[in-house]
Simulated scan of single mutants.
Amino acid sequence: MKEVISAKTVWQAPELQANAQRRGREFDVSQLFVYASGLVILFYVLCALAPQWVAPYEPTLMMTDKILSPPSSTHWFGTDYFGRDVFSLTVYGSRDSLFIGVASVLVGGLFGGALGAFSGYIGGIVDTILMRFIDIVMTIPGILLALAIAAALGPHLFNIILAVAISAIPGYARVMRGQIMSIKSRPFITASRSIGTPHRTIILRHVLPHSWSPLLVMATIGLGSSILIGSGLSFLGLGIIKEIPDWGALLSQGRGYLTVAWWICTFPGLAITLFVLSVNLIGDQLRDMLDPKTSRGR
C-alpha cells in the first residue's frame, strides 16, 4: 500500500508543482496590478491635494503663441484653444472630480447603508414598504436619475454631489439589507436577544461589525462610478461652472476640437479611465480579501 501511494504521489508531483507555479504566477501578476493601481490612486490624491507640486504651469495661464500646440516635451498633453497647458488643467481638474466622487460615495454609502440596515433589521411591513420604494427607484438608470436631480437643483458643487449620492443610495441599501438579514438570523444574535440585550447594543456591537465589509467593497468600486456620473453631468453642462474645469468639463470643451486638436479631450478621458480602472482593481482585491468564500476558493 505504501508503495502504491508513493508511486501515485511521484506521478502527481510534476502536475502539482506546475499548478503551484501557475498559481504563484497568477498571484504575482494580480498583486503587481494592485500595487500599480495603488500608486496611481496615490498620484491622483497628490494631484487633488497639492496640484501646484505636479502641474508645470498655472491652469489659467494663456500662452497665446502656443494655441492648439500638440503634445511635446514642454507641454506633455499639448495646449487648448486658449493656449492653456492641458496637463495642468487635468491635474487641477482632478480636485473637483475626486471630491465629487468621494463625497457622493460617503453620503450615498452612509444614507443607503443606514436605510438598508434599518429595513433589514426591523423587517415586516416596514421592510416591505421601503424595499418596494427602493425597487421603484432602481428601475431608473443612475445617470438618468442624477441628471434629473442635477437639472432640477442647478449647476452647483453640492447639488452635483447630492444628485450622484441619491442615485447610488438604492444599491447601498440593497446590499446592506441583505447582509443584515443574513446576520440577524445567526445563533449569536438569537442568543443576545434571549438574554435581553437591547436592540441598540445588538446592532452596534454585533450586527454592524459583521456587515461592513460588502459595503466597503461596493463603496470602493462605486467611487469610480460616481466619478463617471459626475463627469457625465459636467460634460452635459450640468456640472460646476468654474474657471478651472473638472474632467467632465474638459471633455465637453475639447469635443468641438476633436478633429483638429484630439489631445484636448483625449488625455482627460484617459485620466478618468485610468482612475476608474485602478479603483476597480483595488475593489476586486478588497473583495477577495474580505470574502471568506473567495479566499477559500483561491
Rank of each mutant, 00 (worst) to 15 (best):
S182K: 09
I240V: 13
Y44H: 05
A168M: 13
G224K: 02
G237M: 07
L49E: 09
A271P: 02
F82A: 13
P187W: 14
W53T: 15
T90M: 10
N159K: 06
R255T: 09
H75C: 03
D135Q: 05
E15Q: 13
V29E: 12
P209Q: 08
Q31F: 15
R205H: 10
S30M: 13
L286M: 06
I67E: 04
I189G: 04
W263S: 00
I41F: 08
I195K: 12
T197W: 08
I41P: 00
R84I: 12
I241Q: 14
L204P: 10
T273R: 14
A150F: 01
F118L: 12
G124S: 07
A36P: 01
G124A: 06
G196S: 09
L223A: 04
I122V: 15
I227A: 00
W212T: 08
F27Y: 15
E58P: 11
G239K: 03
A168G: 11
R298L: 05
L204F: 12
G24M: 12
T259N: 12
F33L: 14
P170D: 03
S213E: 13
H156K: 14
T201P: 08
F235D: 01
T90W: 04
L251Q: 02
L233H: 00
A146M: 04
G269E: 02
A163H: 01
T90H: 05
Q17T: 12
Q253F: 11
T294A: 15
L61I: 15
C265D: 06
M138A: 14
G239F: 03
T139N: 15
R174A: 00
A168V: 10
L153R: 05
D127F: 05
I160F: 10
P245M: 09
H75L: 03
T220G: 06
I129F: 08
L251N: 03
C47R: 01
G239D: 02
W76I: 00
K66S: 10
V102A: 11
I166Y: 04
Y172D: 05
I100R: 05
L110Y: 11
K2W: 15
F43G: 07
L68G: 09
A36F: 08
G123P: 06
G222I: 01
S88Q: 02
Y57E: 11
D80L: 06
L216H: 02
H156M: 14
M176H: 07
I272N: 04
V279A: 08
D85T: 04
I264E: 00
S94Q: 02
I125Y: 10
S194Q: 09
A152I: 08
I125P: 11
P56C: 05
A48D: 05
I244L: 12
R287Y: 10
P141S: 02
I136S: 13
K293R: 13
S30E: 13
P141D: 01
